[in-house]
Nucleic acid binder design. Structure first.
Length: 429
RNA sequence: GGAUGGGUGGCCGAGUGGUCGAAGGCAGCGGUCUUGAAAACCGCCGACUCGCAAGGGUCCGUGGGUUCGAAUCCCACCCCAUCCGCCA
């Protein structure tokens, strides 16, 4: 949620910052609505002040045994009047909140301006020399490799649950588990994150806090008989852990990591990435979340992204880092770096991690604050999140990058201990 | 699912329908004392919001209701704890 004070104080700035996002946001009618709300608020409060004064006076007179019938008469008139005005105010307030809840965050001033993903800016590649190493045979897609090896079963997934669900078997299932453990061990052991296992279902308030609701309900799976949604990312439960709290300055930065399964309806993605593991309704992800002081969040995004990149480096998977342009930013983000892994089977880079600084946008929605040592007023914290990494897509990247001419898969060195010593996945294994 | 007890400020915890935004304690901040610290003592100390300010308003799980007036009474709902039942 944007700071209403900022919208009021700098309407042109807010309008122009929103204009470089995708979608259009006209704040003119909002300003009128909001001004009217404040006007009514003033009137309501004046009447409330009078009511409170009268009530107090009644108390005083009763105690003294005096008559208060003139005050009762006044209240008889004031009461209904106040009630009507309060109802009007409430309605206006809800409208204002509704508009506010639907406004996305303002892109950072250092974010490249662009309409869509073609405006994104490549920052660096790893390894940093030219194109990724070419295989000396024709690379296969991961779905061919996986099916041939019997470790990815798309038909079985479709039978059990439908399209965009997959069954992993044998070494495939093991590889997924190995990746989760490898990533968690790295982030907790070397990067200083605390491991968390959150609920995979969340209530409406929680999804509002991170910005999925009310605007993006169609992207979520919902429970049938309970007001609960399956989480689309661990960012949702992890970030909300600090909601409705006033932390101390020493608590910050708070760094959390979690492996969770994630669920997305992919409502707007019909026909996109229909084959393979790239776009699934259900996938596993290791998430990184930081809660910081406002002055620290810029640097925190660099570190968080570096932590995610380290996973790719240890797995020796070629990738590039991209700064998203204004038109490609997510709803809550001020600034986002995407990490894109090289997929030889498809001859392109694909997103494998997205790291964002939302600054105080989510904190304001969920009332996540902290108090500086010695300070009187609490302040909003800044929240950041990033994938470190998407497990399914990492598995894809390993299949495609580590494939051999005979269709077998070499296990990246860093993963061998997590694979029980197995060094290759081949048809026989 | 059934029964019971609860949801009050950063935390713990009192609270009689009427100067209650709310006792007390802890934590925090400032001070006295001390070579310094601790202890002791004194003072300050909720959040949000409207307003240039003076000041006003809202908030005691949520939403309704009763009343001139509700943290206190009534209704509904949510959540938590414990016991019973069921169950990974």
């Amino acid at each position: 949620m944007l700071d209403i004070k900022l919208i009021r104080a700098e309407p042109e700035l807010v309008q122009s910052r929103l204009a470089i996002r995708s979608g259009s946001y006209d704040l003119n009618s909002f300003h009128d609505l909001e001004a009217k709300k404040r006007k009514i608020q003033g009137e309501v409060e004046a009447l409330q002040a009078r009511r409170n004064g009268v009530s107090k006076e009644v108390g005083v007179r009763k105690k003294a045994g005096e008559d208060a019938s003139d005050l009762f008469a006044e209240m008889k008139e004031l009461g209904p009047q106040l009630k009507d005005l309060e109802a009007e105010f409430k309605e206006l307030e809800q409208k204002v909140d509704g508009v506010l809840a639907g406004l996305p965050n303002l892109p950072g001033t250092d974010v490249p301006v662009g309409a869509d993903e073609s405006g994104n800016v490549e920052l660096r590649r790893w390894p940093d020399v030219g194109e990724p190493e070419k295989l000396d045979f024709i690379a296969k897609n991961h779905w061919e490799l996986g099916e041939d090896l019997g470790i990815l079963d798309f038909d079985a997934g479709a039978k059990i649950a439908g399209a965009r669900f997959t069954v992993l078997r044998g070494a495939g299932a093991r590889l997924s588990r190995a990746l989760i453990n490898f990533m968690l061990d790295l982030h907790t052991g070397e990067h200083g994150y605390t491991e968390v296992m959150p609920p995979l279902l969340a209530n409406q308030k929680t999804l509002y806090g991170t910005g999925q609701l009310p605007k993006f309900e169609e992207d979520l799976f919902a429970a049938k008989d309970d007001p609960l949604y399956m989480i689309p990312t661990a960012e949702v439960p992890l970030t909300n852990l600090v909601g409705d709290q006033i932390l101390t300055e020493e608590d910050l930065p708070l760094k959390m990591t979690a492996w969770t399964t994630c669920f997305r309806r992919e409502a707007g993605a019909a026909g996109k990435d229909t084959r393979g593991l790239i776009r699934q309704h259900q996938f596993d992800k290791v998430e990184l979340v930081w809660i910081t002081r406002p002055e620290d969040s810029g640097e925190a995004l660099e570190q968080l992204t570096a932590n995610a990149e380290e996973v790719l480096k240890r797995l020796k998977l070629p990738y590039r880092a991209v700064a998203l342009c204004s038109g490609d930013l997510g709803f809550a983000a001020v600034k986002t770096y995407d990490l894109e892994v090289w997929l030889p089977g498809q001859g392109c880079y694909r997103e494998i991690s997205s790291c964002s600084n939302t600054e105080s946008f989510q904190a304001r929605r969920m009332k996540a604050r902290f108090r500086r040592a010695g300070a009187k007023k609490p302040e909003m914290v800044h929240t950041l999140n990033g994938s470190g990494l998407a497990v399914g897509r990492t598995l894809v990247a390993i299949l495609e990058n580590y494939q051999q001419a005979d269709g077998s898969i070499k296990i990246p060195e860093a993963l061998i201990p997590y694979m029980g010593g197995i060094t290759t996945i081949s048809k026989a294994s």
